[in-house]
């Protein structure tokens, strides 16, 4: 197990290194890198000074080395807008995004999994057809537009939920989150549901496909021949088998939740990472954009690693292979 994790960790470092190369060359390809480091309104002699200060007059490999060592020591430059280190800003905003994404994930799984399994157990039933129709709608509906419609219905017309912001937070078990106050939950409800929507359809489809496949297996027939109840078969034999692919996909999709949070956060003015980066793009605050990019790459690598580990824990066949190597 340890060797398995170590090997995958090494692979991630290699990919991260390659990605830093790509990011670096992308910055250098698209316009003058000085633009990344100074305010666009700077005077020419100031630009020259910065160019020298940052060693941009030196050969490319020297520049890359500096970029790399800077990035490794957590220095990705200061935000033009806020005048503070990009990484610090991101670290401040990250908890809000994480909270949003986790809530969305919980909603997606608790709604999508039972519906998908139900549709898979009775594939020809009316209920299953209805559920699958909903999932096509769920995949096609533009999330941001649905967010606006939710605001119209629940805030403007019904007046139940607040339009924007994060609301009160409270500390519980050392975690500060708006999940622990009523006001916070009210603020969380719409953005989290909105973000979850796309994933509900996905979890549903995965669960249905998995259920169809597993229920046709011999071991399910043998389990029935043992006289097990349907409930027991679903819980002990169906679930563990369909959870393997679902956990993998949902885990990888957790990254896309963070990515899609940019949209949701913009609609509901949620003070998270996504809103920060969208504002940065609009304001040409490039250090933040670069920092966000590297952060996302790192996040995806970590997620892939975590998913592989969970996968190995769930599926004994994979675990064994990992041990043997």
């Amino acid at each position: 197990m340890f060797a398995f994790v170590l090997r995958r960790g090494m692979q991630s470092v290699v990919v991260l290194f390659v990605m830093s190369l790509i990011v670096f060359s992308m910055i250098n390809l698209v316009g003058d890198p000085v633009d990344m480091l100074v305010n666009p309104e700077s005077l020419p002699d100031e630009i020259e000074r910065v160019r020298r200060d940052f060693g941009l007059d030196q050969p490319v490999y020297v520049q890359y080395w500096k970029f790399l060592t800077g990035a490794l020591s957590g220095d990705l430059g200061n935000s033009f807008v806020f005048g503070r280190p990009a990484l610090t800003l991101m670290a401040e905003r990250f908890p809000a995004t994480l909270e949003l994404a986790i809530c969305a994930l919980i909603i997606a799984v608790t709604i999508g999994l039972p519906l998908g399994v139900y549709a898979g157990l009775r594939p020809d039933g009316l209920g299953a057809r209805f559920i699958m129709g909903l999932s096509v709608l769920g995949i096609s509906i533009p999330t941001f537009w649905l967010g606006l419609m939710m605001i119209i219905v629940f805030s403007v017309i019904l007046g139940w939920l607040p339009v924007s912001g994060r609301g009160e937070t409270a500390v519980f078990l050392g975690i500060e989150s708006s999940m622990f106050t009523l006001d916070g939950l009210k603020h969380l409800a719409m953005p989290a549901t909105n973000l979850a929507l796309f994933k509900i359809a996905m979890v549903m489809r995965l669960a249905r496909a998995g259920t169809n496949e597993v229920m046709a297996q011999d071991f399910i027939r043998f389990a029935r021949a043992k006289g097990l109840s349907s409930r027991r078969i679903v819980r002990a034999h169906l679930m563990p088998n369909i959870l393997i692919p679902i956990v993998t996909v949902v885990g990888i999709e957790f990254g896309t939740l963070i990515a899609f949070a940019t949209v949701t956060e913009s609609i509901f003015a949620w003070p998270g990472l996504g809103k920060l980066v969208i504002d940065a793009i609009v304001n040409l605050d490039r250090p933040i954009v670069v920092a966000y990019l590297l952060f996302v790459v790192a996040l995806f690598l970590v997620l892939n690693l975590v998913v592989d580990i969970i996968y190995a824990v769930l599926d004994p066949r994979v675990r064994l292979q990992g041990d043997e190597e």
Binding site: G255, T256, A259, F260, I278, I281, V289, N304
Partner: peptide, 18 residues
Amino acid sequence: IQLSFPAILVALVLLALL
């Protein structure tokens, strides 16, 4: 590697640069 990143994110970053 490209497909391991969500499309919306890649597009967003590209447009930020382009």
